[in-house]
Structures are given as C-alpha cells and as structure tokens.
Design a protein around this nucleic acid. Sequence first.
DNA 1: CATTAATCGAGACGGTACGTCAAGTCTTGCA
DNA 2: TGCAAGACTTGACGTACCGTCTCGATTAATG
Lengths: 214, 214, 214, 214
Amino acid sequence: MQSRSPTGRAGRAGRPRSAAADTAILAATRAALVELGWSKLNLGDVAARAGVAKTTLYRRWPGKNELVVDAVAELFDELELPDRGSLAADIEGVVRQFAAILERPEARSGLMAVVAEATRDDALRARIRALIVDRQKRLVREGRARAQRRGELPAERDARQAARVVDLIFDMVAGAVVHRTLVSAEPADEDWARGFTRVLLCGLFDTGTPGDRR
Amino acid sequence: MQSRSPTGRAGRAGRPRSAAADTAILAATRAALVELGWSKLNLGDVAARAGVAKTTLYRRWPGKNELVVDAVAELFDELELPDRGSLAADIEGVVRQFAAILERPEARSGLMAVVAEATRDDALRARIRALIVDRQKRLVREGRARAQRRGELPAERDARQAARVVDLIFDMVAGAVVHRTLVSAEPADEDWARGFTRVLLCGLFDTGTPGDRR
Amino acid sequence: MQSRSPTGRAGRAGRPRSAAADTAILAATRAALVELGWSKLNLGDVAARAGVAKTTLYRRWPGKNELVVDAVAELFDELELPDRGSLAADIEGVVRQFAAILERPEARSGLMAVVAEATRDDALRARIRALIVDRQKRLVREGRARAQRRGELPAERDARQAARVVDLIFDMVAGAVVHRTLVSAEPADEDWARGFTRVLLCGLFDTGTPGDRR
Amino acid sequence: MQSRSPTGRAGRAGRPRSAAADTAILAATRAALVELGWSKLNLGDVAARAGVAKTTLYRRWPGKNELVVDAVAELFDELELPDRGSLAADIEGVVRQFAAILERPEARSGLMAVVAEATRDDALRARIRALIVDRQKRLVREGRARAQRRGELPAERDARQAARVVDLIFDMVAGAVVHRTLVSAEPADEDWARGFTRVLLCGLFDTGTPGDRR
DNA sequence: CATTAATCGAGACGGTACGTCAAGTCTTGCA
DNA sequence: TGCAAGACTTGACGTACCGTCTCGATTAATG
C-alpha cells in the first residue's frame, strides 16, 4: 500500500524487492523517531538501523516526509471502537485511546512535523489525508451509526449532510485531543475526557447536573 | 520581551544592542517563512534579509525554533474579541479571525513545526505556552466573562473550576480550527464556523432548529 | 602515497574514489597558494578550483596543514643531482635548484607556514619529515657517495657516523638557502652559491685563493 | 620603539597612552603564544590577558603579524657573545644560546609563522629584518672582529666584501640551527654544535683529527 | 540451466546549511 | 581624548545530511 510498485504493469524481470525490508524500515523509522525526534532524524541512520542501504530506502520512498507519514499511519490503525453501551462512553473510550497514542514519542514527534511539512506540499497533504485522516474517520462514522441505532442521535437528512457532520466531529475530537496533548502540553486524562465529552454532547449552554443524560 | 537581556544586572558597559535589529529580524523571519517554508528556512537567509550578520542573530536567539516561535507569536497578538452581541456571534467571530491567521503561510508553516519540535524540547514548549497559548487564552476568558454578564452562561463554582473550563474551551476551539485548517486541509469558512459554534454551544444531542437559541 | 587509503585490506565495496580528484586538488592548492598565500588560503576556494566538493577534500585530508604539506612536497620531487664533475659543482647546482624552487610563491608561502604549524603538531611534523626532509636527503647521500667515488671525500667510519654527517650537511645546505631566501630575503644567486660552497667545503679558516681546490 | 607614537611631536592632547600597556601586551602575546601557538592565537585573548581593550591593541599595532614580530624580537635580544677564548668556542656558544631560545615555544611557534607571512608582505619582511635579522648580525660582526684580533681570521679586502661575508655566515649559522631545530626537529645539542662548528671552520674537505685547530 | 535484468550492500560524490570563531570596526559611557 | 566593554559585519571553519551516483555481488524469473 505505501510503497510504489517498481513497474507500471507488473514486477517483471529482475530480482524482486525484499518484502521484509519495508517492515524493517518502517519499524526503524519509528525507533529512530523515538530516539532522535523529527529534526535529528536522518535517513542514513534509519537505513543503518533497518540493516538496509540508503539507496534501498530512496528506491521505495521519495523522502523523509513520506516515510514518516507511513510509519506514523500504522500507529493509528491500532484504534478501535468497542461498543461501551452509550455514545458518551464510546467517545470517552476513543479519546483515551487517541491520547494514549499521542503519548508515544514516535507519534508526538512525527505527526505534527509532517503536518507542518504538508502545509507546503500538496502530495504530502494528500498522503496524510489518505493514510491517516480518512482512514480514521471510520471511527466517527461507526460511532455515529451505532448511536443512531441506539436512538441517541437522529439520522441525517442526506449523505452530504452526514459527511459534513462526520467531518466536523472528527475535527472537533481529534483537534481537541491533539491541541490538549501537544500544544497545551497537558495530559488528556480521564477527567479531561469526561469534561470534553460532556461539552461535545450537551454543549456549553447545558446546565444539567453531570451524568444525567448518559 | 522575547530577547534575552545582555547582562544580568543592567546593560551598562559596551555598545548597546540595536533595537531595530530585533524588529527587522522577526519581520525577515516571517518573510522567509512565506517564501521558503519551515524546512527550507535558514538563518543565513534570514540574517541577510534583515540586513544583519548571522552572528547577531545567534547572539539574540538560541536557534531557528525559538526565533520562529517569537516571529509567529506576534501574529496571534492581532486577535481581538469585539462584542458582537451574543456568545455565538463572538465565537464565530474569533473562529473566523483565527482561521484567517492560519490561512497566512507564515503561520501555517511555522506553527505546527515549532509544536513538533516542542515535543522534544521543554524550554521550547514553555516558550510556546508563554508567548502563544497563555497569551491567547485571554480571548476565552474575556468571551466567557462577557457571556456571563449577558446571562448566557452560569458563573463557575470556584477559580479552579473556571480555569479548567477555560482550558477546555481553548483546546476545543483552537484545536478544531487548527485541525480543520491544517490537518483536514479544508477551509474554516463561515458555514463551518456556524456549524462548529452550534455544536460547541448546544452539543450533538441538540435537536432544535438551527438558530433558535442565538 | 599522500592520501589515506579508504579501507584496510582492499578498496572493495562502494564507489571508488576518483583518482583524478587527488591530482586536481593538489594542483588547485598550489594555484591558490600562489594567488592568496597561506593565511588567506581557504579550503572552500581550493575545492572550488579543483571542481570538487569541500567534503571530498575533507574526506581525504585532515585539514589545511596536511594538504599544503602534500602539495608542497611534490615541488621538491623535481630536484635532481646531475653529475657536474666535482663536488663543488654538484653542490652549487643543487643550491641553485633549491633556490629556484624557493623563488616560487607556492613554495615560499607554504613551506614556512607548515613548519610553523608543525612546531605544535607532532603528526604534521612527522608528515613533513617523511614527505620532504627524508625524501630530499637522497640528494645529500647521492652527492656524498659520488664525491667519495671521485676520492674528494673520505669514507665514513660506520653507518651511524655517515647518517650524522648526512643530517648535518642537509641542515647546513637547506638551512642556509632557506634562511638566505626567506628570512634574510635576499636572492641565493650564483655568486652567493659559490661563496657558500667555498665555505662549506673549505671552511672559514681557508685562506687559499678561490678556485684552487675545485 | 616598536609602537608608533600617536602624534607627530609629542602625545599632547587628551589622555596619554599607558606606557605599561605596551609591556603588558607583548608579555601577554608571548604567554598566549606558549599556550595556544600561532594559529590559535587571537587578539581578543591577548587583549584580555593584558587587561586591555581590543581597540587599544589595534590602535598600537596593525595586526597579529606585527605584534608577534615585536614580541618575538625581544627574545633574541637576550643573545650575548662572551669571549670564550677562540672562534670555535664563541661559535659553539652562540649556537647553543640560539638553540636554547628556539626550544622555547613562544619562539618556535611565532618565528616561522611571521617569516611565512612575510613572504607576501613587504612591510612585515622589513620589520623582521630591522628588529630581528639586522639586530642579531651584531653577533657575527663582533665574533668576526674578535677572531681577527686574535689572528684566527684574515681581514677583509673592503667593507663590501666584509658585509657579504657577515651575511653569508649569519645565514649559515642561523639557517643551520633553525633547520635542525624546527624542520628536522632534532635537538641542536652540544655534539651537534661541535660538529657544525668544525665544518663551518674547516670545511668538509678537512681531514684533520678533531680538535687539532682549535 | 544459462541469461538477464532489477535489487542489494557499500560508500564516494556535489551540495547546502549548520553553529562557532576570529578579525577588525564601531558605538557607547566613564575617566 | 584615551580607554574598557561589548555589539557589529564579514567570512572561513569543520561537520552533518541531503539525494544521487557508481560499483561489484546477489537473486529470481525467463528463455
């Protein structure tokens, strides 16, 4: 998925690419990210850790940015949305999972850096959307559908409206957790997740006692 | 404010630092950020643009990271919170202003990059908090106080609770706008701002027709 | 000879070093020495003249000192000792040749400078001895052997004594020419060479009319 | 002597220059030369050691080269030529004294370096001649006159011839000691001094048993 | 089963930017 | 005015990575 195939139609003649190398390189990238952080990360070091030549790495990825997107994207594939019985519980659960990933240094260092690079690189931005953003929106879609099945949320008027709502919620949830964790640099712990979920579901105008609606 | 004072007690002996240089350097930094972006930004170029020697720059800032934090921080000082008559209108206004800043390439490139670097640099994180985060929380505090005066929001139980709410709202607003703009890479336009404000104030459970409560 | 070989056993793996680069760099060093002199000589300029990256230069030589020793050493390899029929004529010949080399600006600037640096750098001193001093002592040894074959000089008692005499003569000849040329800054012309040779062979006590013994 | 006087006639107006400063600066230069050597020597450090501002230093000397010539020249003024009873003994004595000075790091590092610089700087070359070369030729002149008084050496035909001989002997003695000490990097000890003196006085053709003529 | 064509390791290559250091000048304020 | 302090411009330093290249040595699938 993440590496371009060497030929247009099919890997015809010649020695085929080592499948193990891809795995080793991505793992080495994460390891290097942990030790060195984004700015000191260098592809020569990654190649050495993976037991691979620098040329092998450049044959498969265009550069540092794309490599790190791929390496970080795999982290977010761990996210799951088990049914915790209510929308509030589901949200709190995914917020805590997301926060846990963002505690890991390989995610912290890498994620914001590639987003920063993506502000000036359309292809990179597309890659991030495809491998991280769009892929994790499944969580919002699934949680929303489940809540609608439970009757907690109304159905949307149409598909366009549904997509807009999913996008908005994703930006609100992911944005708040990322901002709390990386910009404000405070832990997104259980208390914070509960407060956040309350506002997200009931709004700031809500005056009810905590826990009444869940 | 952003530059270290040259002496511990008082700038007594020797030639004093040129005050104009600071201004020129920060402006040059933003200009270079627009043209080159974070990753191609180099201090030699910044120094040349500012009409200043590279050593002068290094005498005043420890490095690229701190320089960019200072340069970007000035951008956010433009944010204002004029009274638009209702909390909803105030939020929409500040969201649109914030989004407008994040459209500017010097902010886009710089902000996420320094946040990324700050994940491995405590001093840098502190600098970001002091110059950007804590400074802009004034907007949340002011908006909240104004809404309480209008009777739109209840008063907090105590100061600790108030601070927690301010922090939460700041992360939710800033996080959502940043994520929408930089990660999802979609415009935070008027429509989006309205939808966001609605959810923030009324929550996802809200079923009222749009506009009833504002 | 002057560049370190990249591998211990044999230059096997990896791209081999360009052989032409060594030649180009040493020639560029001499050219830069002529134009700029030692103190203004800089490796960036040398690299540019040689059409080579600065890193290539640093990969092969530790620094300016060693590079200049190698570049200057090649100049002295031009020295020859053709048989002019008598020891006096041979000495005058080599003195004039040596003086001619020291007229050249690349030798003038470089030689004394590296000797100066070598006063605080053992490795550099060893390099000078190996590439310049010991290499040119061949001239003294050869001239002495030839004079002994002619019967002009007696044979030494033993090898140790021979080595001491060779060292002494080398220091006297080279020292006098260098001092005349660079310190006193007077030309070591034919007249001077004749006077010097007379004293070296006959001593200050000699009272004979010039030319009687040759 | 070595510093230019600030005004044409007398240091009249304004604060007069501190006389102690000159002494302190030259001493500091030698101290820095011992610790750092020529190439690492820097005028900021010298100024600090001398308890003087860098500007003061530049007001009195044009630069590093001239400063070091002055500092080193003072060392050679220590040379003396006590009457040891014979020309051979006088020469051996001065050779040993000269060698002793060249053992001192401040002389080793500085002397060759300024000679190297002087190859491209006429004013510097003149300064070296005036302060070092010409000044120490007094030793040769005095030794020669003494030997003539003793009857060891004949008188010259005329003054021009006398000057040529003095120059030649000076270059031979100083050149040999410098070359032995700094280029060959061997000690100019008592043995070497005796061998050198023998050759200088009797020549290489001499076959007599050592010591017969002294 | 030999050929063939791409991949692999290693490492040199031309570049660019780094952050530091020294040279020499300029600008203060004090004596 | 001389002087100490120290900021200033300039420019080289030596290092580290960048992404490309040139090698000789493996490897499969093809012929």
